[in-house]
Structures are given as C-alpha cells and as structure tokens.
Design a protein around this nucleic acid. Structure first.
Lengths: 187, 187
DNA sequence: TAAGAGTGTTCTTTATATTGAACACATGAA
DNA sequence: TTCATGTGTTCAATATAAAGAACACTCTTA
C-alpha cells in the first residue's frame, strides 16, 4: 500500500538522538516531562507514539518534529563532487549542475546554475513546499517572487518559501552564474 | 520550557494539504485506508494522531512525515538580500555572511564564506543532525570529513551528513570563497 | 558478600486514538 | 416536494498509547 517512502524507524532514531546527547531514558523522560516507560516503549517500537507525545519527548532533546523526521539519509558516501562530475539536470540555454547524483531521501539539494543571456526558468505555483536560497556569482539576474521583481548582481542573494510562484531570468549581457540550494529537493 | 519551536498545527496543515489535492475527507480516508472520522478528528485537532496513524493518512496524499513537518515557516517576507546586507556571523580570518537575518523556524541556511589564506574552521562532532553542501567559487580548499581529506578547487562541491566530524581550511595562496548551505540551520 | 544507584524492561491501570455507524446539512435531479 | 448523493461532524465501542510501580540487571563501593 505504501510507496518506498523511507519508513523511518522512529524508535531507533529516538534512541540514536538520545544517546548522542548522553542522556539516559530516565534523564530524557524527566527533561521532557514523560515517563521513562514511554521512552522505553517508543525506542523499542512497541508503540507508535502520538504526535503530541513524540513532540513532548523531543522537547527534551531538544529537537523539532521537523528535524526529527528530516531524518537520517542513511549513509550515503560520496562527499566530494568534482566540477566536471556535477550531474547535469537541465539542458539548452540553462545549465543546472547538481551536487550529488541521487538525492533520494535527502533533505538538501544544491545546484550550480548557469543561464545564457536571456535564458529563463519559470516555475509556476509549486505545490511542493519547502524553502530555497541562492547567491549570484556572476552576471545579472531578474528574480520574480509572488509577482514582485528583483534585480540581483554578484554577491546578492535570495531566500524564499518555495510555494510562492517564482521565476529566474538572466538579464545581463554575459552569462549568469549562481549557486542555489533548496530543501527538500524539488526534482 | 520549550523554545519558540513553531508548534505546527497538525490539523490545519493536514486540511490544507488535503484541499490542495482536491480530496474530500472520505476520499483521502479511502486512499489512506483509514476512517473518515479519523481524518475529521485530526483536522479538527480533537485528537493528536499516533505517528503511525498520521503516516497512514499522509500516504494518501501522498507526502512523507518529513515533508509534512518540514512545515510552513510562516510567511517571512524579505526575499532579496543585497551583497552588503548579508549578515556577518563570524569574524577574523573567516567571513561567514548569511543569507537572511533570522532563521528561527526555517529549514534552510545559506552562507557566503570567505577564508583568508591558512584560515580554518573546524567543527568537531556535531550533535545536531542534518546535511550540508557547498560549492567552491574561488581558491583552494582542504575539506576533511570523517577523517578523510579532500582538496577542492573552483567549481568543485561537497555534500555530506552534518553529523560526521568535519573541518574546512584554505590551502591556497589567495582568498578562498565558497557558497554553502545546510539544513537545518546549524547556528 | 551486601547495599546502593544506575541502567533498560515489563507489568496493570488509565487516558486517548480510532473505528463504524448514525447524524445534520448541503446540492442537484426527477 | 422527495430522493439520491455529496460534504463534514458526532457518538458509543474498541484498540492502543501513556503513566506509575515493580522488576531484572549491571555497575561501584563498602
């Protein structure tokens, strides 16, 4: 019934986080205001805690539900990606070169973007929620977010909620180069 | 006891997502394999669903728990940050200039980093989990992750799990310039 | 040994989430 | 109107999570 959506192991993850903080079940329980039995049960996956209960427990770490479920990407290995091995994920007048090949299960996506003069990348209203940011390295760019246009040059940056409709365009004479990041990965 | 950790409104968020998909409570319930009453209760915040129960419901959207809780950071406004208004968050031989001033409740952090020759930034084992990535713009950098050293030049990039111990150093003759991003924000 | 303090686990009761059916209210068709 | 089908909500029964106390175990210290 379920897709392969990383079935995060709540118990293991909680235990992992707790131990990283050097806390015993009782110590965490006390900080969080729950019983030690609850912590034990949850860690052993003998129960599936209520969201409010889990939030309560996580308050003792402390960590938010978002961070908790942002989850362990598993151990992916490659750390360094050479300039020529960034994965090209767009063609034509726009070059999107992604850091890392397979982002399945990851929380972050970074892209080295290049736009030929006049090139533009418009994304309509995106249902997927998240955040994105970028910093211009070279060239001039026109950024439109939620109907408002902004002109950015080298060193300028942006940060917005991905759900807002947005579009990018190179309005300079030369190439536009920028580094962007978004979470969660959008494609 | 709690920090201002955005107390996400589970009910409102679920309803919002469901409506965005154009589903009725019953339609979603059927796809998810739960009762319509459950959907109603959860949306009205009359109960705090179990994690397993919520996952079940979200499978009908479909969306993962991570995405669900990555959550709406509320409407923050400033979209564009000029080069000279990036917030300096480190001093001395290292310059960290952050995109956006207040990242409270946000999921993403982007930093424009500059290192003088020889400067280094070592972070020991970081308890906070997450991911980080970066791309070198100028100069040569030595990156050490989990005991392994890598040398990177312009255009090269990295991507790793923040929990692994890591350190950065400028090993070039000139300035090292890079753009990094991490999720969740680490400081 | 024994006693004490620490660990995580297991028990029984209590609180709460979830179900399936009934409910109340809309809209559109005969 | 009357019926049919849609919506979201509420109710009583059942399944499950949470609490508090007891348990079993490992240490350290006397």
């Amino acid at each position: 019934m379920n897709d392969a959506h990383f079935d995060i192991d709540v118990g293991a993850r909680l235990r992992d986080l707790r131990l990283k903080q050097g806390l015993s079940q009782r110590a965490l329980a006390k900080r969080a205001g729950v019983s030690n039995a609850t912590v034990s049960m949850v860690e052993a996956n003998r129960v599936s805690p209520s969201v409010s209960g889990l939030r309560q427990i996580l308050a003792g770490i402390p960590i938010s539900l978002g961070e908790f479920f942002a989850g362990p990407p598993g151990d992916r290995e490659q750390v360094v990606f050479r300039a020529d091995e960034l994965k090209e994920i767009a063609g034509g007048p726009i070059s999107f070169r992604q850091v890392g090949a397979n982002l399945e299960g990851r929380a972050l996506q970074m892209i080295h973007e290049r736009y030929r003069p006049g090139a533009e990348s418009g994304k309509a209203m995106l249902s997927h929620q998240g955040e994105e940011a970028g910093l211009v390295i070279r060239g001039r760019m026109l950024l439109e977010v939620a109907g408002i246009r902004h002109e950015l040059g080298p060193g300028d940056a942006y940060f917005f909620d991905s759900r807002k409709p947005h579009a990018f365009r190179n309005i300079g004479e030369g190439e536009l180069e920028l580094v962007s990041a978004c979470t969660p990965p959008s494609f």
